[in-house]
Amino acid sequence: MILNFGARNFFSFKEGFDISFELGTKCPAEISRGKGVSNILCVKGANGSGKTNILKAINFISNFVTHSFDNKTDSYLQFDPYFTSSSDSDFYVTFSLGQVIYRYEATLTETEIKREALFRKSKRETKIIERIIDTVVFTTKEYAELTKIKMRKNVSLFSMAAQYEIESTKNIYNSFKKIISNVSYTGLQAQTHELEFINEFFYHNDEVFNFTKDIIKKFDPSINDIYMAKSTDEEGKAIYRPWFVFKFDDQEDILSLNLQSSGTKSLYRQLGNYKAVLSIGGLLVLDEFDINLHPHILPHLLEIFLDEQTNPFNAQLIFTTHNTEILDFLGKHRTYLVNKNNTESYCYRLDEIPSDILRNDRTIIPAYNQGKIGGVPNL
Rank of each mutant, 00 (worst) to 15 (best):
V245N: 08
S256G: 13
Y240N: 09
A315D: 06
K275C: 05
L327F: 03
F329R: 13
R269E: 14
A276W: 10
D250L: 11
E308N: 14
F319W: 07
N292K: 15
D307S: 12
H322Y: 14
K275A: 09
E235V: 11
I239E: 14
V245E: 09
T320D: 02
I239Y: 03
Y274L: 00
I318Y: 08
F329P: 00
Q270R: 14
T320H: 03
D287I: 09
G272N: 08
S256C: 07
D290F: 00
I254Q: 11
I280Y: 05
Y268S: 06
Q251H: 10
T264P: 08
I297W: 09
R241T: 15
N311S: 10
F313N: 15
H300M: 14
Q309N: 14
P299S: 14
K275D: 07
H322C: 10
L255K: 11
D287F: 05
Q270L: 15
D328A: 10
I239D: 11
L283N: 02
D250H: 13
Y274K: 05
P242S: 03
I239M: 15
L286Y: 01
P312R: 08
L327G: 03
A276M: 15
P295A: 12
S256R: 11
V285G: 05
I304E: 07
H322T: 07
T310R: 00
N258Q: 11
F313T: 12
K247A: 11
G331I: 03
L278A: 07
R241V: 12
L284C: 08
V277I: 07
S261I: 06
L271H: 02
D328Q: 10
S256D: 13
E235N: 15
D290V: 06
G282T: 04
Y274N: 00
I304H: 03
S231Y: 13
F319Q: 01
L271K: 03
V285E: 05
S266V: 06
I326E: 08
G281I: 02
F313E: 13
I326Q: 08
P242T: 05
N314H: 14
Y274M: 01
T232R: 15
E234W: 09
N323V: 07
Q309I: 13
T321K: 09
S266I: 01
F313V: 08
F313G: 10
I304S: 02
E308L: 09
L306Y: 00
I280V: 15
L301N: 07
P242I: 06
A315N: 05
P312N: 10
I280L: 11
D328I: 09
T321F: 02
D287N: 10
Q270D: 12
L301Y: 01
E288D: 15
L293S: 07
Q251P: 00
G282E: 01
N292C: 12
